[in-house]
Amino acid sequence: MPNRIKKLAVLTSGGDSPGMNAAVRAVVRTCAYHGIECYGVYRGYEGMIDGDFQIMDARSVKGIINKGGTILKSARSKRFRTKEGREKAFQQVKEAGIEGLVVIGGDGSFTGAMIFNQEFDFPVMGIPGTIDNDIFGTSHTLGFDTALNTVVDAIDKIRDTASSHNRLFFIEVMGRDVGHIALNTGIAGGAEEILIPEEDLGLDRLVDSLNRSRTSGKTSSIVVVAEGDKIGKNIFELKEYVDQNLEDYDVRVSVLGHMQRGGAPSCFDRVLASRMGVKAVESLLEGKTTYMVGLLNNKMELTPLDNAIKGKTKINLELLRVSDIMST
């Protein structure tokens, strides 16, 4: 394996997701394995501009594989969106002798990495870290599996209350542009309906569906709603509409919010992060750049960053059909 690079850096950017720490650990220990110095960049691109670097070795990442969030912190950098900010960041990495960068984040973070590469011919590699699973070129992003488990656990608890009081619960989950979390957790949680941005169920059809559930003998219902669903302006408008058009339903709303991002990563996410970290570092050592590491057919594959940013993930049509059948 060519080994032209002697110093690498790793940063986490954008929204945090479970598994980021495990990925940082994998990057650092892969560098140690290959005799490469590794620097952690604190606060994402903001820290890169400020030269907030800390050398890391195999021992400095002990005990973090099971921790949520990111020990390197994360920040959204307005300065890095400017030419001046990126030039300052380049001078900082140049002065530190850093010759390559691993970016753990989402499409916004990858866009910054790609522009940085284009302007300064600086080697970069991306690892997809976002619970929404909305990055093209990988079947799973870091944190998606953990978020699913967190949401299902919450739905199970809410269903206990719904059943006890014969209530209808609207449960909002994350997914501004895609419904991967809602669709998967809705099926796993036994939801009567699942509302996602990709499928416009319509308010009248929703009421008809809930009426059928009541007629079939169901005394309580769960409706999982992706935050980007287009049926109503928001989940509270949905509640008001059902209140007005469906008699004898005690309707409640639960917005799970940022709790979905937290918590210890699942076994799947820990293994995925480890595989991605190794692949990212070794790809840079092989002279590759501006790629994202992804999981496709259970293999680590590289997707050009431009494709990962511009490509669109598709909802699983089989899961939609399964959802329709299970809600009968």
Rank of each mutant, 00 (worst) to 15 (best):
M1A: 09
M1S: 15
M1V: 06
P2Y: 05
P2N: 12
P2M: 08
N3V: 04
R4H: 09
K6T: 14
A9L: 10
S13I: 03
G19W: 05
M20G: 04
M20S: 06
M20C: 10
A23M: 00
R25Y: 06
R25E: 12
R25I: 05
R29P: 03
C31V: 06
A32D: 14
H34C: 14
M48F: 10
D50L: 15
G51R: 08
Q54W: 05
D57A: 10
A58C: 06
A58H: 02
R59F: 15
S60W: 06
K62N: 10
I65G: 01
K67H: 09
G68H: 08
K73Q: 15
S74R: 11
A75K: 14
R76G: 10
K78M: 10
K78T: 11
F80M: 14
R81L: 15
G85E: 02
K88G: 03
A89W: 02
F90R: 12
F90H: 12
V93M: 14
E95Q: 13
G97W: 11
G100D: 06
L101P: 07
G105Q: 00
G106D: 00
T111G: 11
G112F: 03
G112P: 06
F120C: 06
F122G: 05
M125Y: 07
I127P: 03
G129R: 08
D134N: 08
F136A: 04
L142A: 10
G143Y: 07
F144Y: 15
K157Y: 09
A162Q: 09
L168M: 13
F169I: 11
I171N: 05
E172L: 13
V178D: 01
H180G: 01
N184E: 07
T185G: 02
E193F: 04
E193K: 14
I196R: 01
D204H: 13
D204M: 13
D204T: 12
L206A: 10
N211K: 15
T215F: 10
T219F: 03
S220N: 15
V225N: 05
K230M: 13
K230W: 04
I231K: 02
F236R: 12
F236A: 08
E237D: 14
Y241C: 11
Q244V: 05
L246W: 09
Y249Q: 13
V253T: 13
S254P: 01
H258C: 12
M259S: 12
Q260S: 04
R261T: 11
G262R: 08
G263N: 13
C267T: 12
V271K: 03
V271M: 10
M276F: 15
G277A: 07
G277Q: 02
E282Q: 03
E282A: 02
L284I: 09
T289Y: 00
T289G: 01
T289V: 03
V293W: 00
L296P: 01
N297I: 12
N298Q: 13
M300Q: 07
M300E: 12
L305P: 00
L305S: 03
D306C: 09
D306K: 15
A308V: 02
A308L: 03
G311L: 07
K314C: 01
K314I: 01
N316T: 11
E318L: 15
E318D: 14
L320Y: 01
S323I: 11
M326N: 09
